[in-house]
């Protein structure tokens, strides 16, 4: 078969999802990625001058047309319920409100990153970022 064209997502996972990675919160506190809680993101966004947290509800999860290693996740974002689709590696973790790290293929996430992870499902509400209104 012909080679696949490039996809919108990076070919490998970013290093900060590996268990033990040190994350700096907006107030300067350092935490390991696996220890992050919903409140850490909320409090960091409150301090941030540019970023705010949106609630992004998973509306659909399907396999990518370009590669079996990728999935397309469709979100309903924010109060206006804007529809946004992202193509990600199946092991790419999202942070679900009140629950923690979740991915389309949690076994792979745990295997590759050692990051404790649950299965991302339709209806899950993920933390996403958007810009604060700058007027």
């Amino acid at each position: 078969p012909p080679s696949l064209s490039s996809t919108v997502a990076p070919p490998s996972l970013p290093p900060y999802f590996i268990k033990g990675s040190i994350i700096q919160l907006a107030d300067g506190e350092l935490k390991r990625v696996e220890d992050l809680k919903t409140e850490d993101f909320i409090q960091s966004a409150e301090i941030s001058t540019e970023l705010k947290i949106d609630s992004s509800t998973v509306e659909r999860i399907e396999g990518s047309h370009t590669s079996p290693n990728f999935a397309v996740v469709q979100f309903s974002v924010g109060e206006h319920r804007a529809q946004v689709s992202v193509e990600v590696l199946v092991e790419y973790p999202f942070f679900v409100f009140g629950q923690g790290w979740s991915s389309c293929c949690p076994d792979r996430t745990t295997q590759l990153l050692e990051l404790p992870c649950t299965k991302l499902s339709v209806g899950d509400v993920c933390i996403s970022l958007t810009l604060k209104n700058l007027r």
Binding site: P15, Y16, I23, L30, S48, V77, V84, V86, F95
Partner: peptide, 19 residues
Amino acid sequence: VPVFPWHSLVPFLEPSQSG
């Protein structure tokens, strides 16, 4: 040891403009 900012970990999803 590298230190990563908190906002790297969650996706930036830009909702469509309205209002």
